[in-house]
Write a protein that binds this DNA or RNA. Structure first.
Lengths: 356, 356
DNA sequence: TTTGTTTTGTTAAACGATTAAGCATATATT
DNA sequence: AATATATGCTTAATCGTTTAACAAAACAAA
C-alpha cells in the first residue's frame, strides 16, 4: 500500500534507455540502436520502422547514456587538463581556449590545479586515468618528469604546455623563453637602462631557467657586468612576501636598479603593487617590463610593455596536437613553438612608435 | 609472423581488470571484487585468499575502471559547474574553491562557460546530463529559468550561485545584492558625494536588478534627485566599448558626476582603464567604488574601496548544499545568504580608519 | 548416521549501450 | 525449379563492475 508520505516523496524520473524505446515500439534493442546511430543500412532497418523508432525516441526524449557508450567503446571523449592554478588568469585563459576547441570537437574537459605540487599532480593524473580520459594536456610542475614519462610509456596521449621537459620525449607547445627574455631586456638596454633587475620564480623548470639564461646572456653580450644581486628568485609558496622583499632590495639606494623585468604575470602584479606602495613612479623612477599579459595592466597609470604569449593559440594548438594523438595512435612526438611578441608601451621609458 | 614494423608499433598497454586478477589467482571475478572493495565479510572471502588477491592486484597495478563502476552504480562522482566565463577571475576563484572541496570529497568537477548565452547554457547542461553528472552548480544566465526548472523537475540536484532566480524553486547561494550596494553608495554619500553614477550590466537577472534597486533607493532615501543619465546599463557583449562611452558621458562637464560605482569586476577594470586614459585622478577628480574584488586593483595607484563577496565561502557552501542533495534525496530547497562586506580604502575620498 | 551451521567459494544477472552473427521470408537469377 | 541475394529483424556476446543467489565442502550437534 502507498502511504501518504509516498505521494510527496520525490520520485526520481527514471532515465529513458534504448530498452524503453524498444519495448514501446515492440522491437529489439539492437534495432533501436542501429536506427538512432544512423546505421540503418548496416542494421538493415526498414524505412517505416526507422521512422517509428525515431518518433518514439523523440516522444520519450531519449538521450544516450554517455557512460554506457564509453564503457563499450573504450573512449570517453573527455580530456584532462592539469595546470598549476586554474584561478591564475594565464592558465584560466588557456583553459578557456582549450574548453572551446574541445567542446567544438565533442570533447569534454576536466580541469585540475596542481598548485605546483608533485603529490597533487600525481593524484590528479591518477584520478583522471581512472576516469579513462582519452588524453592529457599538462603544464607540468617541477619534479613531475616521472609522472609524464609514465603516461608516455603507457601510450596515453599527452601534450605538455608552457613548460618544456627536455628529459621527457613528449609532445609540447611552448614558447622560446630564452629568446623572448633576451629581446625584452635588449629593448630595455637599447633605451639606455644599464642596471637591470629581474624577478623570477625559484624553480628548476626549464621555462624559468631559460628566462634567466636569456637575462644573463643579454647582459653579457651587451658588456654589462652582471650583478647577482639583481636576479631575485622567489618561492612560489611565499610569492607575495618574497616579491615585496625583492622590490625593496632592488630599490634600495646602494644598488638601486634602473629597470626590472618580471618573469611572470603573478610576479608582475605583486611587484607593481609594492612599487605603488613605495611610491616609485614608472617609468621615471623605475622602468618595468613584464612576461605575459594581464588585464590588470589596464589599471596601472603607465601602459605596460610586456612579452605577449598568444594564449588562445597555445590552447588551440595543444588541443589539436592531442586530438591527432588520440585519433591516430602512431603519431610522432613533436614540439610546437609558439611565437611570442614584445608589446611596447611606455613602461620602459620610451614612447612607442605607434604613439608618436 | 611478426614483421619488423610490429616491433615499433606502439603497443597500447591493456588496462588490467578484475578479470585479469581473477585469472592469475585462479578464482572468480566476484571474489576479487568483494576483496578489493573490502567486503570480505559480505563476500565470505577466506583470509589467505584475500591476501593473495590483494597482492596480485598490487603486482598488476590494478586500478578500478571508474566508468564501469559508474554504469553499475548509477552515479559518477562528478558534478557539473556552469558559469558565465571561467576565465573571469570572479568565477575562476569560485571554480577553484569548488574544485578543492569537491576533490576532497572524491568528486570530480567538469566546468563549462556559458558566455551568458541561453543556447550554450542549454547545450552544456545537456552534455553534462548525458554524462550523468550527479549534480550541478550553476551561475545561471539570463533567460535560463526553464532550463533550471527542468533540472529541478527531473529531481537532479542543483544549486545556483551568485544570481538568484526568484521564479524557480531551487537551492541557492547568494549575497544580498540590494543591501551591499545600498551600503556602498551610502558610504559615498556620507563622504559628501552627491552626484553618483553607476555602471551596471543590462540584464534582467535578479542580482543586477537588485544592485540597481539598491542604488536608486539609497539616493531616494538620502533626498538625492535621481538622474537617469547617471545609471548606465551596458551590454555584456560589447562591454568594453559601452563602458568607454559611459565613462566619457559621465565625466562630460555638463553632467559630470562626483563618484561612480561599478556593479561588477569587469565593469570596474574596463572603467578604470578608461579613467586612466582620460587622465582623471581618483579620488581627487572622481571617487570610485566597486562590486567584487580584483587582483588588478593592486595596480591602481589609489587603493580601491569595494564590496567583497567571499568567493571561497561561495564555493564551499554551494558544494556542501549540493552534496547534501546528492546524498540525501529528499532535501528541502534552501537559500543560503552569504554576507558581503565593504572594504574601505581611499578611492571614495576618505582615509580609511585603519590607516589613520 | 543424519541434520544443521559455517566457511568458502561460484554463477549469473544487471547497468546501457554496440555489433557480429543468425534466421526467416521475399524477391531475383539461372 | 533450384539457387542466390536482399530485406527485416532478433540473439547473444561484450565492455568492467557489483551483488544477490546458489553450491559444496568442512565441521558440529543431534
Amino acid at each position: 500500500m502507498r502511504s501518504v508520505s509516498d505521494l510527496f516523496k520525490p520520485t526520481v524520473k527514471k532515465k529513458v534507455s534504448l530498452k524503453d524505446i524498444a519495448n514501446k515500439v515492440g522491437v529489439s534493442i539492437a534495432l533501436v540502436s542501429y536506427t538512432l546511430n544512423n546505421k540503418e543500412k548496416e542494421g538493415r532497418v526498414g524505412k517505416e520502422m526507422a521512422k517509428k523508432i525515431r518518433q518514439v525516441a523523440k516522444e520519450l526524449q531519449y538521450r544516450p547514456n554517455h557512460i554506457a557508450k564509453s564503457l563499450k567503446s573504450g573512449n570517453t571523449q573527455t580530456i584532462g587538463v592539469i595546470v598549476a592554478d586554474i584561478s591564475n588568469p594565464f592558465f584560466a585563459h588557456i583553459a578557456r581556449a582549450i574548453e572551446d576547441v574541445a567542446n567544438s570537437k565533442g570533447y569534454t574537459v576536466i580541469f585540475g590545479s596542481s598548485d605546483e605540487n608533485i603529490e597533487k599532480s600525481s593524484d590528479l593524473i591518477k584520478v583522471l586515468q581512472d576516469r579513462q580520459v582519452d588524453g592529457f594536456i599538462i603544464a607540468p610542475s617541477e619534479g613531475t618528469e616521472a609522472q609524464i614519462q609514465s603516461l608516455v610509456d603507457s601510450n596515453i596521449p599527452v601534450v605538455i604546455i608552457d613548460r618544456p621537459l627536455p628529459a621527457v620525449p613528449v609532445s609540447a607547445v611552448v614558447t622560446d623563453n630564452y629568446q623572448a627574455v633576451y629581446g625584452a631586456i635588449q629593448h630595455l638596454i637599447d633605451l639606455g637602462n644599464k642596471k637591470i633587475g629581474m624577478l623570477a620564480i625559484d624553480t628548476q623548470l626549464n621555462h624559468m631557467k631559460e628566462r634567466m639564461r636569456g637575462y644573463e646572456e643579454v647582459l653579457k653580450n651587451n658588456g654589462i657586468a652582471y650583478d647577482e644581486k639583481w636576479l631575485k628568485k622567489v618561492k612560489y609558496e611565499t610569492i607575495k612576501e618574497d616579491v615585496n622583499a625583492a622590490i625593496e632590495e632592488l630599490s634600495r639606494s646602494n644598488i638601486a636598479v634602473d629597470a626590472i623585468m618580471f618573469a611572470t604575470n603573478t610576479l608582475a602584479i605583486n611587484g607593481l603593487r609594492k612599487i605603488n606602495q613605495l611610491n616609485l613612479k614608472v617609468p621615471d623612477d623605475l622602468r618595468i617590463i613584464c612576461f605575459d599579459e594581464s588585464e590588470a595592466f589596464g589599471l596601472f597609470y603607465c601602459p605596460m610593455t610586456y612579452v605577449r604569449q598568444p594564449v588562445q593559440e597555445f590552447g588551440h594548438t595543444a588541443f589539436s596536437m592531442l586530438f591527432e594523438q588520440i585519433e591516430n595512435d602512431d603519431t610522432q612526438m613533436k614540439e610546437q613553438m609558439i611565437k611570442s611578441e614584445l608589446v611596447v608601451h611606455r613602461s620602459c621609458g620610451a614612447v612607442p612608435k605607434a604613439e608618436i
